[in-house]
Design a protein around this nucleic acid. Structure first.
Lengths: 190, 190
DNA sequence: TGAAAGCCGAACACTATGTTCAGTATCTTA
DNA sequence: TAAGATACTGAACATAGTGTTCGGCTTTCA
């Protein structure tokens, strides 16, 4: 079974990632220090730096899980490429976000959120590009701008939704997202 | 003429804001320290803190200029509320951005860019809300999400455009922005 | 079971932040 | 134009976080 990682190392990493998420939901990414993390995870300082180069690195690597999820999702639904159901990658992420609701809310929008947001941008950007690039006819709008637009819309809907009370279910998020991304707001202005 | 500010204070602030912009374009917001700023501006450390609470504060206050611009712009064009020309506030900002092109590019997208981006978000959000709120009929999409969507789209177009070579003229930016915001991407997918 | 890999934790050097204060320069206005 | 108010200087200090190093201990793997 492929070179499995040392059990201790795995434990440590899981502890650190868990600690980070816990701390983020508790006080926001910005306010979290490396010291907090290793205290919470009960791990030595030098150990931390043996695994990650810093706070940001830890955060970025904690997104691996999500990326894997997305790749799967996209592979599974690769065959049903109907014209009507574009952008269906979004569902998986919305669900992931609702599961880690508190952490996401603390991340998206806050200052350190940029690191997270950028990571999400990359991950989602890849998904969008893969799905969209073969379907974009010639247009005045450059393709990369289109991709960025879709990603931006996605993140907007995500963070707006997470802020709302009562919580918006993933299905609703997806609907709003697709309406905005596909049709803009022209149709709902009088 | 209203209580004009002390000439020395004005000088100092201008120097600090100028220094910040210069440094941002030179090495990016993140890398700039307070020490850098006061060296560049040739101002005492304590003086800096007498005016601003820190780097972020200085950045935020440096956007005052832009806000004033936008408010003017919007007042001027308040009468021509035709249905066809929505979102025309954008032009002024795109032009401002092209003027401070280098600074904007260093800001939007970089990590510290969040502070700037958030500030831009607030400023533009106000403008959008003012223009849009009376024109939004009942809809499944919550109004504040709509506003955030428009703002997000704006920022996406802005940063994508600034990254492009050769430079995209403000008029072009505006066109792309309005197409995406008003009509989404449904129409350009086959 | 023994070598390899991982972990501990204290100590250290470094960088940046934000405050304080006594002395000096500049402005305002009467 | 002089006096009082206001602003600036610059060095010293306290605080806080970062990232590295290293000798000694523990766990894992084969």
């Amino acid at each position: 079974m492929a070179q499995s990682i040392d059990r201790r190392a795995a434990r440590t990493r899981k502890a650190l990632q868990g600690a980070l998420i816990a701390l983020i939901t508790r006080k926001g990414y910005e306010a979290v220090t490396v010291q907090d993390i290793i205290d919470e995870a009960d791990v030595g300082r030098s150990t931390f730096y043996a695994h990650y180069t810093g706070k940001d690195d830890l955060l970025r690597k904690s997104f691996e899980q999500l990326r894997a999820l997305l790749v799967d999702e996209q592979r599974d639904s690769a065959d049903q490429v109907r014209s009507k159901d574009a952008l269906l990658f979004s569902r998986a992420v919305f669900e992931h976000a609702c599961e880690y609701r508190h952490a996401y809310r603390a991340l998206v929008g806050s200052r350190g959120g940029v690191v997270a947001a950028n990571e999400l941008r990359r991950i989602i950007g890849d998904a969008v590009r893969k799905e969209l690039s073969p379907r974009l006819g010639a247009s005045t709008v450059p393709p990369d701008v289109v991709v960025q637009f879709v990603v931006g819309t996605f993140l907007t809907v995500l963070s707006s939704s997470l802020r709302r009370r009562p919580a918006m279910p993933p299905a609703e998020m997806e609907k709003v997202f697709r309406q905005l991304a596909l049709r803009g707001i022209g149709w709902l202005i009088e």
